[in-house]
């Protein structure tokens, strides 16, 4: 049961958008990032990394609010997020 109050200024507050980066080869597949992402951005991938684990994949990119929780809960230094604007300028191949 989620009991969050809806902020009164929700309409005119812009939520930050983030982009998630996954370092597949560092992942050991614990699933913490997937389970505890507050926006359920991540899912389990079908592919294996070299060690035989299923790294997470981004399923709902636009939902990411760049809260960094995946980054700080990850025991493997295998995932991080950046704000969208920065990402766009540095990595023009990312399209939204």
């Amino acid at each position: 049961m989620e009991l969050w109050r809806i902020p009164l200024d929700r309409d005119h507050i812009q939520t930050m958008q983030g982009v998630v980066y996954i370092l597949d080869e560092r992942c050991k597949g614990c699933g913490y990032c997937i389970e505890f992402c507050p926006k359920k951005v991540l899912g389990v991938s079908k592919h294996f990394n070299r060690k035989g684990y299923h790294p997470p994949i981004v399923k709902h990119q636009t939902e990411c609010v760049n809260c960094h929780f995946c980054e700080i809960i990850c025991p493997e230094f295998a995932i991080y997020s950046k704000p969208l604007s920065v990402t766009e300028s540095q990595n023009p191949q990312v399209t939204v």
Partner: peptide, 28 residues
């Protein structure tokens, strides 16, 4: 839309400068 995944080693985790990267993955 397309999303980055780890295709190269060019991605840098925000803690990489504090990690002995040559020893990652760790043993845990």
């Amino acid at each position: 839309m397309s999303i980055q995944s780890d295709q190269s080693d060019q991605q840098t985790h925000p803690l990489d400068d504090l990690l002995r990267k040559d020893r990652i993955p760790h043993i845990w």
